[in-house]
Design a protein around this nucleic acid. Structure first.
Lengths: 290, 290
DNA sequence: TACAAACAAAACATAATCGATCATATTACG
DNA sequence: CGTAATATGATCGATTATGTTTTGTTTGTA
């Protein structure tokens, strides 16, 4: 009898307890009345360790309905902390170094990104000095530089550096800095200083979050600092933003949208956002349209 | 009584959880509650390591049917991450594509270089701050850094930078500078300044020409300038030199041989040269000997 | 070539999950 | 006290993920 009780106890508590241990709870702390914010905080805490969470697990842990879990995840998705997927969510926290995040998951919307990069490449003239910032969209520009003459390219992305080895006529410079490996991006004091010392004709910015009113923002403070200086160092500031980045606000503010000279996006972007940007004086190019 | 039951319960769950942790499980890895996204992520992770995966293998690993595996692979193929083939899939990740050209670059004496790099890695201690200079021999050290703790690596080589992304625990910094694409080496004023600002425990120098009497030299003036500063910035200066570099004099002088703390070479080097170096006070290690 | 075994594609079934909507409870605030 | 705002739960049709089955396809071997 006692064995059976123990067994049932074991089964019942096992699942939930794993998570409680993982996220640092102990048994007594869980009250019946948990605030929504508290719950959401716990979710982000889990995601900083786990990469994914499943909706049904969360339902059991917090003793709420699936609807509430969905609302929580939707909320956190709007804040840019995770991406929802069927059955749960995937972490988007910058601090989480789950290995091939750049290699693999940065490959979303390849067609849109390529279309955007094609428009961007059209803006580059022979003899230009340009800055290519580390970002999956921006790096798509590199293969399109075949036929440009006398180009100077400055970059803070090791990947772009490696890609550029195929273009012997291009003069290539690297900013240096500390490697943020989740995004494959050099930042920090060295990057800031070198960028501050130069003046480029065109800077191609990767952007992870844009809200036409709030402006550009990003998940990392370091990255924001680099972008700020880059914006000051460039005559033309061209942002490459696919539609999934719109309406988002990241942790660190970069600049108001009107500091951009040009913004290139794809046809999936809400027309209202495009209009707001144009009213701010930004030259908006929509790739994949005539 | 009930307290006792609860206590035993808790003990049991605790132990089960520890057991899980020990054997490397976490919840998401367990077949029943794995998100599709998680599975696909794992596949890309595998592909970044081994270039190909077999469908039946994946079926067993994830405890799903072949149909699901095929759908996953089809999904990843649409994203451009792999190419499907009968019985599995082949990676299309940039890292794996990139590998061959890197291999082709400097594979003259691979066995010697590897042996030299192995000796070099033995000199690296946990917690060290090291400089890895761009050179094919030096970059062989990178895969050997798996088990070192709390390392800080500074480098002027884009290749080493890219290689190091597989070591999430290592803090990585890049000097910046202008790219010399034939040797894949960052040099120039930015590189010189950043190296001048730091102090590393150990610098691993690639050397393209060494003459025990004349000293170290190289083909490019820029490269020589960087090396000179690097030698000043390092407490230990370790040169990695295979036998083919001996008895040569390059265009630009770097430093006399006695500025080296240590020199690692292979067994093909003339004993007379080794003796001269030892007489100068250089600690000479011959890789591939006892 | 013929044949068996493994693999792939398509069509269907099922269960889990999602989105939207409405109802209810709780809180905040005048 | 009443009302608005918010958070949560409940329900239902739509969507998605997965497994199953059937029917080709490829591959290796005699």
């Amino acid at each position: 009898m006692i064995d059976y009780v123990l067994f049932v106890c074991f089964r019942l508590t096992l699942e939930a307890n794993v998570f409680r241990l993982v996220i640092g709870w102990n048994m007594t702390e869980r009250g019946e009345c948990m605030l929504a914010d508290e719950r959401r905080f716990r979710i982000t805490e889990m995601l900083s360790r786990q990469r994914t969470v499943s909706a049904s697990e969360l339902k059991d842990i917090f003793n709420v309905t699936a609807a509430t879990v969905r609302r929580d995840l939707a909320h956190l998705e709007r804040k840019g902390l995770l991406v929802r997927s069927h059955g749960g969510a995937v972490s988007k926290l910058p601090s989480t170094n789950f290995q091939p995040s750049y290699d693999a998951m940065g490959r979303e919307n390849p067609a849109e990104k390529q279309a955007i990069a094609t428009e961007a490449a059209k803006l580059i003239l022979d003899g230009d000095t340009i800055f290519l910032e580390g970002s999956t969209t921006v790096s798509e520009i590199v293969p399109l530089l075949q036929h440009h003459k006398r180009l100077t390219v400055v970059t803070n992305s090791p990947l772009i550096l490696v890609e550029l080895r195929r273009h012997p006529e291009i003069k290539v410079m690297c900013t240096g800095g500390e490697l943020q490996r989740d995004v494959f991006y050099l930042s920090g004091i060295w990057a800031q200083r070198t960028i501050g010392e130069i003046r480029v004709d065109k800077a191609f910015l990767g952007v992870s979050a844009i809200d036409p009113e709030y402006g550009l923002s990003t998940a990392s403070h370091d990255e924001a600092a680099v972008k700020k200086i880059l914006i000051k160092s460039a005559k033309m500031r061209i942002a490459l933003v696919d539609h999934s980045k719109f309406g988002r606000q990241g942790f660190a503010f970069v600049a108001p949208a009107n500091e951009l000279t040009t913004l290139i996006t794809d046809s999936g972007t809400p027309p209202a956002d495009l209009k707001t940007l144009r009213d701010l004086g930004v030259h908006v190019i929509v790739a994949g349209q005539d």
